[in-house]
Design a protein around this nucleic acid. Structure first.
Lengths: 219, 219
DNA sequence: TAAAATATTTAAGCTTACTTAAAAATATTT
DNA sequence: AAATATTTTTAAGTAAGCTTAAATATTTTA
């Protein structure tokens, strides 16, 4: 299967996982940076390959086969991110960009070697779960968006859900890193801002940030 | 530049390095597994991009720009082979196949990180020299084909110039590995066979093998 | 060196993965 | 609910990287 196809099913998978669950051709097109027409075309084509269910004007839904393919690509992406992060001093954004290309050129054999080398990790450096060889995610994610946290409580950062360079640069600069501890000092409910304390620094984040930074309560 | 273009200039570079120095479209086509017509087409196209000199019915010759591109790809290939060989228990052939894909999806930044991690090695696991960041090979190769060795002398294996699985399997099985020592016990000049002693085992190799196994005299 | 074999080039055509423009359907707003 | 805006689909077209078939040039062999 081509890179275009792998990226297409991956985009459907990713959009399907998001809150909005928007997998109509238009939003897939946006995700991939292609025209709506191209997305419709591809959707029809992949339906004939039994990778997704296509019905005019409806959301695209992956078949089991399509889901498996998407998870296989996601697995390779997250394994590469984990490996590069461990071995090299590179920014999360750079690592993401490399993984975005390498994921399509990696045999299952190599993916398994990488996984074994890393001790079969369950999460990548963003805190995203790594599917196993059979395309299953065995961990259950109990984390919540920072926007949903309670004032005065302490949390541990569990996921940074983004591909954006500026976001990662900001996070790196302020210690917003997978595994780090933060205190929610104030929730500004009307403006949807959150004030946190991290490394003895107070930062105020808006909803663009607090909706993609996920945390687990610290006990 | 596309994968097809990178592979095309790489094929010209590789064929140009070989004894026969055959870089006419037909042999490039053979190397890449495409039709002669496709090779001619591509050659014309790359001439307009200043990657090679094209003259009807003549050998293809890379420009400086083309050579640099080829060496950049070769560098990435050999760095990947070195890294995978060091990290994972995989056959030389498997490693080659992975590197063949990864080489096109690797930024210069990542290549440099890999190189630094490995201590900027000069050779890959086949004994092939690794070009530096500027596309230069600074080492001088004094090795000779096993077919050119002298009876009774001892040599160290310095290069295994092949992509072939069966060849690598054979080598792995008999200890024919980069850095290993062999004694040339007999040269059968009429049949072009070579009898060697390695790990206390005697093997007789024909010219298909002795022409692609390179060695340095052991002093 | 002429004939035969081989290699290269040209020409026409195919598939993939896109594009833009216009038509048709759906969703949103008033 | 009608009008408007947005999305989706259809249709036609493009570029890259191939293919096969036929024409042309080169190389080999007898």
């Amino acid at each position: 299967m081509s890179v275009a196809i792998e990226n297409f099913v991956k985009a459907i998978y990713k959009n399907g996982k998001r809150d909005n669950n928007d997998t109509k051709p238009g939003s897939i097109a946006k995700e991939l940076g292609i025209s709506n027409a191209a997305a419709t075309d591809m959707a029809k084509k992949l339906a004939t390959k039994d990778l997704l269910h296509y019905q005019k004007y409806q959301k695209l839904e992956l078949t089991d086969k399509g889901t498996k393919m998407a998870l296989n690509v996601v697995r390779k992406h997250r394994l590469w991110e984990s490996l590069l992060f461990k071995m090299f001093d590179m920014s999360l954004h750079d690592i993401h960009r490399e993984a975005e290309l390498l994921e399509h050129q990696t045999s299952d054999l190599l993916a398994n070697k990488i996984s074994a080398y890393l001790g079969n990790p369950k999460f990548d450096p963003h805190g995203d779960p790594i599917p196993n060889e059979d395309g299953q995610i065995t961990t259950t994610d109990t984390s919540i968006a920072m926007s949903q946290t309670s004032e005065g409580k302490t949390y541990i950062i569990s996921r940074l859900m983004s591909d954006d360079k500026e976001f990662f640069d900001f996070c790196a600069q302020h210690g917003l890193k997978y595994g780090n501890t933060i205190l929610i000092s104030k929730q500004f409910t009307t403006n949807k801002m959150t004030q946190i304390l991290i490394n003895n620094n107070t930062i105020i984040l808006n909803e663009d940030f607090t909706s993609i930074i996920y945390v687990n309560e610290h006990h």
